[in-house]
Design a protein around this nucleic acid. Structure first.
Lengths: 256, 256
DNA sequence: ATAATAGTGTCTATGAGACATTATAAG
DNA sequence: CTTATAATGTCTCATAGACACTATTAT
């Protein structure tokens, strides 16, 4: 108790304690499907999340977020990293903690406080996994479809919140880079932003991002070995300039 | 276990479970001290946080963030609200969850996963408390001073993170309103922003906020009953226009 | 040549930023 | 009348936003 003065007569165990502190991870990826037209064109991109089908009680058979219980010897972040690795084989991706879910009764197994992360995984990493085990119980779903499903626990709420969070972050930070190759064209960047934030529309996008003083530091032109601008004609007839993100972290303010 | 198919033979308790899930609250307030000059002047404002002095083990005698253990029947947010109310008597303030602290060994009492909130409390609410019980074991400290202290647990890290968070939010959202009266002058707003974000400087502040099309919706002029602009000469010789925040939530983007 | 995507020119209205100037009221 | 703070004028250059136009290359 608080009034005792050393560890030997401290007893937290007289209180009811949580039955578990899991992490749940909303793993986002953007899939690309080549258009089967004759002409070169940008692929069709879709924002997807990874779900697993539950085997046992509770919510057996229903789809749920990947995740699992935390051990005493790890932090929540480490726990989530471990689960992410187990589920996708992927390490070294962008993962962020964003909320805790603790409403009484949210888990029939008891008093379980869940810690929600989102991860942004480039499809090329998930491709490996899908080749390895094309298990029917681990799948990518388009986000909009996932939000229509009857997910286990309060996972629909978690997915909704995660989606809101990455939409905000997509517009205010440079996380778009997590979904793009190192070098990309302006069209690809624009398309990735729109895939995550469908309402996004910016007519003069290329000028905003490349020639306005306040923003031009965010991305930079890629040059080849001879110092010439490096271009790509992968998605278009006319070759497009390649860009990469810089290390600059944009600071936004409503007062300046 | 996961492979069983109903609640009766589910047993989470065979695993080690956390010894507690507390909330810790970084309660920010801005104190105003009138300058004792002859002339009217803006008060000296200082960003402070509320700390309590621990009585028992562990960290007896050291200063710590207010907070306490969550019960099974409440959510983390409700827990934090309850603690906030117990500590300050205040309800109905801006409080936000911002991070979890779960590093192994962070609490000598065992495996304790702490959920950190920050709250923004107008000094007028804390004034009551300070009159009631001027207890030496609950005090406001200037943030910079608190960060120099040897706080209990990992509370210095929590305070550092909370400070970073409210600095960011001060510039990107309208939380400044939590530290201001309903009606305020531009100078007061400017001063509040600077109190939280000392680096903030904006020469043409009044024009940015009142006459640029993209931002002018954030605050609006206050009019009196007869429809005339309402002014205040509380802090200055020449009366200044009063403003209030609107309900508008500014949307920021690095791409537009 | 055609089509498809990349990228620029150009024009107007608005905003940013710096500084000087005027306005108001207390003492 | 002096002083302190509030607020506007003014000037230059940058940016926003719209839309027409040119550029490049596969077919």
């Amino acid at each position: 108790m608080e009034s005792s003065d050393n560890a030997s007569n401290y007893s937290a165990s007289k209180y009811r304690t949580p039955d578990g502190a899991p992490s749940d991870i909303v793993i986002f990826s953007i899939t690309s499907t080549e258009k089967n037209t004759m002409k070169k064109a940008l692929p069709i991109r879709e924002l997807q999340i990874l779900l697993i089908q539950r085997k046992g009680w509770p919510y057996a058979g229903q789809w749920a977020l990947p995740g699992g219980f935390c051990n005493e010897s790890e932090s929540m972040y480490d726990c989530a990293l471990r689960e992410l690795q187990e589920e996708t084989g992927v390490t070294d991706v962008h993962m962020e903690y964003f909320n805790v879910y603790s409403k009484p009764g949210r888990d029939p197994r008891g008093w379980i406080i869940s810690h929600a992360f989102f991860a942004l995984v480039h499809e090329k990493w998930l491709a490996n996994r899908r080749a390895d085990d094309d298990a029917a119980d681990v799948r990518l779903f388009p986000v909009e479809e996932a939000l229509q499903m009857d997910l286990a626990f309060d996972h629909r709420e978690i997915v909704t919140d995660a989606l809101g969070k990455i939409r905000e972050k997509m517009l205010t930070t440079t996380i778009a880079k997590e979904f793009l190759p190192e070098e990309f064209t302006i069209s690809e960047l624009y398309q990735v932003i729109q895939t995550v934030v469908p309402d996004f529309e910016e007519r003069n996008f290329i000028r905003k991002i490349t020639s306005t003083q306040s923003r031009k530091g965010i991305i930079e032109e890629v040059l080849d070995r001879s110092g010439q601008p490096k271009q790509s004609n992968r998605y278009s007839q006319r070759a497009a300039q390649l860009y990469r993100f810089t290390d600059l972290t944009p600071q936004l303010s409503i007062y300046s």
